[in-house]
Amino acid sequence: MKRFVVFSLMLFLSGGLFAQNSSLYNASAVPKLVSNQFAFTEGPAVDKQGNVFFTDQPNNKIWKYGTDGKLSVFMDSAGRANGTYFDSHGNLIVCADEHNQLWQVRPDKKVLVLLTNYQGKLFNGPNDLWIDKKDNIYFTDPYYQRDYWTRTKPDLSSQKVFVLMKGQSKPIALDSMVRPNGIVGTPDGKNLFVADIGDNKIYKYNIDTNGMLSNRQLFFAQGADGITLDERGNLYLAGNGVTIVNPQGQKIAHIDVPESWTANICFGGKDRRTLFITASKAVYTMQMNVRGVE
């Protein structure tokens, strides 16, 4: 009898997991290769029309994947762009780690350098970012030694999460981690998720009314590169494929991606139901039954 109960419980749990998977995407859905012509893809961001912009960091380019399915180069000499995100005015905010800066790239491709340092010291290398509805910019600053740098060690003593408040010229340090990486906030602006890839953890914070962070909690015991959210509050973790975690911090699905590393993800397309995946030398798309919230 005991074995039967255990077996029945396993069937119930696996059935529940399958039901959650099937509600997110069809059972037959798999990532579809768009192109593998790149050196290393990163930093996808979606504009108001649903076009996705992403970076090829070693080749120093920002690409556009249009809602028509066409690829085009948006920008050359892109500051070795890594993470990107659109602000409310349609400017692409870029983690430009060639010189460890934060850029604003206007639709006409004119560049404004927003940040060059923290308290007179070079950033480690701004990596990923999220912008709230007030246009406050939250970003991570891990240290990854680049072959195009002349320095061989960081200027800063730790690796932090920062915010640049709208209209301000100086960033505010919010928290320190082993190696912060992916970052995303909820649409209501109440919570922020940050991946500490150096400590194999995802943390969740409250965002206070003044834009500062409080109540740091361990959300999920797995690291990640880029992260994003869907309309149900599920968190998508890039790294070994794509892991999907529900709002309670439970793994509910995993999407296999046929590349050695999945660096980042976002939802694009006119209906925001296309999961766009940057993975090593390639980019992929996968049709979903849920919408993204970025």
Rank of each mutant, 00 (worst) to 15 (best):
K204V: 03
Q222T: 12
P154C: 09
D188Y: 03
L33E: 13
V163K: 04
N215A: 03
S260Y: 12
S35P: 10
K32R: 12
G182Y: 07
Y284G: 05
T285R: 09
G83T: 13
L156T: 08
S157A: 14
D68P: 10
D56T: 12
V178F: 06
K61E: 15
N181R: 06
L13F: 12
T228E: 12
V194L: 04
M165N: 01
F139S: 02
V283K: 06
G185Y: 01
G120W: 08
G292A: 09
G66Y: 08
K61N: 13
A19K: 06
V163D: 05
I277T: 09
N82L: 03
V242F: 07
P171I: 06
V46L: 08
N82T: 04
S176E: 15
Q101M: 02
G198L: 04
N240L: 04
T228N: 12
F7H: 13
F123E: 05
V245M: 02
M286W: 06
N206L: 00
K134R: 13
L102R: 02
Y65S: 01
L13H: 03
N246I: 01
V52A: 03
R179V: 03
K190V: 05
I172C: 12
N59E: 13
A96S: 12
T186E: 05
D76H: 13
Q20I: 08
V290A: 11
T209C: 06
A253L: 14
K64C: 13
K190H: 05
L122V: 02
D135K: 05
N136K: 06
A221K: 13
A282H: 04
A263S: 15
I183V: 15
T67M: 07
K133P: 00
M1K: 10
S214F: 00
G16H: 14
E259W: 02
E294Y: 04
Q250I: 14
G226N: 07
G125A: 03
I197L: 11
A78K: 02
S22H: 09
G189M: 09
N210F: 08
D175V: 02
